[in-house]
């Protein structure tokens, strides 16, 4: 047993926890509150209660198209990122990988290097060697940004599994596809699921790479909200932003189910 925590420390801790909760959640709370305002303008506190702004965005072809682009992009990115990231994590978990440290660094480095560099670089390459930015280029950028999350979650899960199961399958003569389908992938499943949810969430929310690679017809929801914020936002932006928060909450609940939020966080 560790000794008692003095009352002063406990009080400071509680105060800090309360202040952090208010500070961290306030920006989300005001967005949600503004979205149910009955007023024409973005005012706080909201005047009256109405769901008219939700009706508005759900009837607006601009918002619906952006939502469609964002969902398609996130789905495509998730599939590619999980496939590449899972394969890489399984490869990295094998013994005797040459340049293991460097490869690990390469797979995690998009998290460390400023995303703005990636955005400009992709734009410059796409303009030089392709016909400028497009859905495919944005998807490539998002795969790069999401890959580290998949590699990390799958690697963390694989570090705890028993490698002798796969060895047993190999020794008993299972062909490679049975070995992967019946042993390796089931073992990695919680990591695959968590990686997929992370990838989907990051791609759905991403704005930096998207701002540089914005192309006609590839306007995602974050891009639409950003351009509305640059001019004069009305409560419809708040409704769209609230839907994005709802999506994040759903992803968090899913992450908690498959891996435990505790493990995801630390």
């Amino acid at each position: 047993m560790i000794g008692r925590v003095p009352a002063l420390a406990a009080a400071l801790g509680v105060a800090l926890a309360a202040a952090a909760a208010i500070f961290m959640l306030a920006p989300l709370a005001v967005v949600i509150a503004s979205s149910v305002s009955a007023s024409e303008f973005l005012v706080f506190p909201p005047r009256g209660f109405s769901l008219r702004w939700y009706q508005e965005i759900l009837a607006s072809s601009v918002y619906l198209r952006a939502l469609g682009v964002s969902l398609t992009l996130a789905a495509v990115v998730t599939v590619i990122s999980v496939a590449l990231g899972a394969a890489a994590a399984i490869g990295l978990s094998r013994p005797g990988v040459r340049f293991a440290g460097a490869l690990q660094g390469l797979f995690l480095s998009p998290l460390m290097l400023p995303t703005i560099l990636l955005g400009i670089g992709l734009l410059m390459l796409a303009s030089r060697y392709a016909n400028g930015p497009s859905f495919a280029v944005m998807a490539l950028g998002h795969v790069v940004v999401t890959l580290p999350y998949v590699v990390r979650t799958v690697s963390a899960v694989l570090a705890r599994v028993d490698p002798s199961l796969e060895e047993a399958a190999r020794v008993m003569g299972a062909p490679w596809w049975r070995r992967y389908w019946h042993v390796v992938l089931p073992q990695a499943r919680p990591g695959l699921a968590a990686g997929a949810f992370f990838a989907f969430n990051v791609s759905f929310d991403e704005a930096v790479v998207a701002l540089f690679l914005r192309a006609p017809g590839v306007e995602t929801l974050p891009l639409l909200i950003y351009s509305k914020l640059e001019f004069s936002p009305d409560p419809s932006v708040a409704a769209a932003a609230t839907l994005m928060i709802a999506m994040t909450v759903a992803v968090m609940i899913a992450l908690d189910r498959v891996l435990g939020l505790d493990k995801v966080a630390a």
Partner: peptide
């Protein structure tokens, strides 16, 4: 509770959080 307090904003789009700060 604190993990939710820290992770929920982290996983929310930076555009949405900045919007919240504009209102505040």
């Amino acid at each position: 509770a604190l993990i939710v307090v820290v992770v929920l904003p982290l996983m929310t789009s930076v555009v949405v959080r900045t919007f919240g700060w504009l209102v505040i």
